[in-house]
Amino acid sequence: MSLFDDRKIIIIGDRDGIPGPAMEECLKSTSAEVVFSSTECFV
């Protein structure tokens, strides 16, 4: 049982840190559903 099992996830990545698609790829091994994924620039 994982913390992310059967959850809906919103991902907001950082352009200079970890981008959203990279975090989304890590969650593919769980049963979490990514409903929104974006990479933003926080200045």
Rank of each mutant, 00 (worst) to 15 (best):
A32D: 03
P21F: 06
E24S: 12
M1G: 13
C26E: 12
G20D: 01
S2G: 15
K28C: 01
I12A: 07
L27T: 02
M23Q: 07
E33K: 10
I10T: 10
S38Y: 09
P19V: 02
L3S: 13
P19F: 00
I9E: 02
I12S: 10
I9F: 08
E25S: 11
S31W: 04
P21T: 02
V34A: 03
V34Y: 02
C41G: 11
D5H: 06
S2W: 03
L3Y: 14
R7C: 08
T39R: 03
I11Q: 02
E24F: 02
M1T: 13
V34L: 04
T30D: 05
K8S: 12
G20Y: 07
D16Q: 13
E33S: 11
V43F: 12
S37T: 13
G20T: 04
D16P: 00
S2F: 02
E24D: 12
E40W: 08
T39A: 05
V35S: 09
M23F: 08
V34C: 07
D16K: 11
E24Q: 14
G17R: 09
I12H: 07
L3F: 15
V43L: 08
G20A: 07
V34Q: 05
S37V: 13
C41S: 14
I9H: 02
I9V: 15
I9S: 02
V35E: 11
E33D: 10
E40S: 11
S37G: 08
S37W: 06
P19K: 05
R7W: 00
S38C: 06
K28M: 07
D16N: 14
S38R: 15
R7T: 12
A22P: 00
P19M: 00
K28F: 01
T39S: 07
E40M: 04
V35Y: 05
D16M: 08
F4R: 00
D6H: 15
E40G: 05
P19S: 11
P19D: 09
D14Y: 05
I11Y: 07
I9P: 00
I18S: 05
A22C: 08
V43Q: 13
S38Q: 15
D6L: 14
S37D: 10
D14V: 11
L3P: 06
S2I: 03
E40R: 13
S29Q: 11
G13S: 07
I11C: 08
I18G: 03
A32Y: 02
F4G: 03
D16F: 11
K28W: 07
D14P: 00
C26N: 06
G13K: 06
S38T: 14
I18E: 06
K8M: 06
P21Q: 03
G20L: 04
I11S: 05
S38H: 14
V35F: 07
G13I: 04
F36E: 15
R7E: 03
D16I: 07
